[in-house]
């Protein structure tokens, strides 16, 4: 099904790696834009898992799911960036450590 040198596990490992990088980005980076990018990276790595499985299983559900994930990720990014722009206008920063008005 795949090239002899690249099998299902390679795809899965790569996507675990990308997912972990994304998680680390959300947790350790304080720039809101980079946090968004990291979330996109997480979703993309999941897409890779789904597609690898879908191909491996010979089943089309995964393909459809990936298309839906694209759409959802786009909607989430649109809403997120819109809120961030509003927030930036008021606070003049995208550093999430400065978004702590609610914690007081």
């Amino acid at each position: 099904m795949f090239d002899a040198s690249v099998g299902l596990n390679h795809y899965l490992l790569l996507s675990v790696l990308l997912f972990v990088i994304g998680v680390a980005g959300v947790i350790f980076r304080r720039n809101a834009i980079i946090m968004f990018m990291s979330i996109e990276l997480m979703l993309t790595s999941v897409n890779l898992t789904i597609l690898a499985y879908s191909r491996y299983l010979g089943d089309h559900t995964g393909h459809v799911l990936v298309l839906f994930v694209f759409a959802v990720a786009a909607a989430e990014a649109a809403v997120g960036l819109a809120i961030l722009v509003e927030l930036f206008r008021k606070r003049d920063t995208v550093d999430v450590d400065r978004f702590r008005q609610l914690m007081e």
Partner: peptide
């Protein structure tokens, strides 16, 4: 309100 929406979105998407 903006901050609430932003926090909910980042953690929700996560």
């Amino acid at each position: 309100s903006q901050e609430a929406g932003f926090k909910y979105l980042i953690l929700g998407a996560f």
